[in-house]
């Protein structure tokens, strides 16, 4: 694990922006993430988190600005970038008509792992994520959302990436699976992997992340450690991450007069 500013930059964006049909999804964004960080990227729905993640993964070309990930240009060196990063999209990108082991065998092959090494890593990851007992003859489409997330995470980790991009990894899964995934990610960070993830589960972000960024309406509002974020938001040291988030996202509590039948 690297220490603070001594660690090399693994993500660096300068004026990174993206428009869809003339509408800005991400306004010019300057962001820096260092190796070994557990970086939380937060924002309300439609804030531009997924768009930013997709640009950083080389899946979406920016309208303007630049992004360097692991020292590689996200728009020009996409193949090399894909060799080095692991990605868990919000909706697990799985072939649902494959079995979990077939899926991992495919991913191993696409990343150039020889079959034996692919199998060894698959079993190790399945053991770690408590997937080893999964029915070998069932298709992924018959597994629960949590199981599929775990398989997708295993697929993202299989080739040993140095940087993980995770889009809502804890969305729609139970507490047991959350704990399992959390353990895997913490272990990975302890071994020097950088995790860049977006999530709506603020308690987890608060517990896991070394640094946090909050984006609203495509604009980066705050970025730093939890303490720095509290100060930048102007809410003081006692404020929880949820308070900061709701404050920046413009959330308000309104009276629900129309639902008196509840």
């Amino acid at each position: 694990m690297h220490d603070g500013l001594a660690a090399p930059l693994v993500v660096k964006t300068q004026g990174l922006s993206r428009e869809f049909g003339g509408k800005p999804a991400v306004l010019p964004l300057d962001l820096e993430v260092r190796a070994g960080e557990f970086f939380g990227f937060l924002g309300p729905n439609g804030a531009g988190k997924s768009t930013t993640l997709r640009m950083l993964c080389g899946l979406l070309k920016p309208t303007s600005g630049s992004a360097q990930v692991l020292g590689l240009d996200c728009t020009r060196e996409t193949m090399e970038l894909r060799r080095r990063i692991g990605v868990l999209p919000e909706e697990p990108a799985l072939y649902e008509r494959l079995t979990p082991r077939e899926m991992l065998a495919l991913v191993a092959r696409l990343h150039g792992l020889v079959p034996d090494e692919g199998r060894r890593r698959t079993e190790a990851l399945f053991e770690l994520m408590e997937l080893a007992q999964a029915d070998r003859s069932r298709l992924l489409m018959d597994f629960s959302m949590g199981m599929r997330k775990k398989v997708a995470l295993a697929a993202a980790l299989l080739h040993g990436p140095k940087l993980l991009f995770l889009d809502e990894p804890f969305n729609g899964i139970d507490a047991v699976t959350v704990r399992a995934i959390r353990g895997v990610l913490t272990d990975a960070v302890n071994r020097g992997v950088t995790v860049f993830f977006s999530s709506h589960v603020l308690e987890l972000v608060e517990k896991l992340c070394t640094r946090i960024a909050i984006i609203t309406e495509g604009r980066l509002r705050v970025c730093g450690t939890l303490t720095e974020v509290r100060m930048q938001s102007g809410l003081g040291e006692q404020a929880s991450l949820e308070d900061v988030f709701v404050h920046l996202a413009g959330g308000t509590r309104t009276a629900h007069n129309g639902v008196d039948f509840l």
């Binding site: 193949m79 894909r82 990108a93 649902e96 991913v107 696409l110």
Partner: peptide, 14 residues
């Protein structure tokens, strides 16, 4: 026939 899996294919360095 790929559906969601196509994202994985596009993410691969193959």
């Amino acid at each position: 026939a790929d559906g969601k899996g196509l994202t994985l294919l596009m993410l691969s360095p193959a």
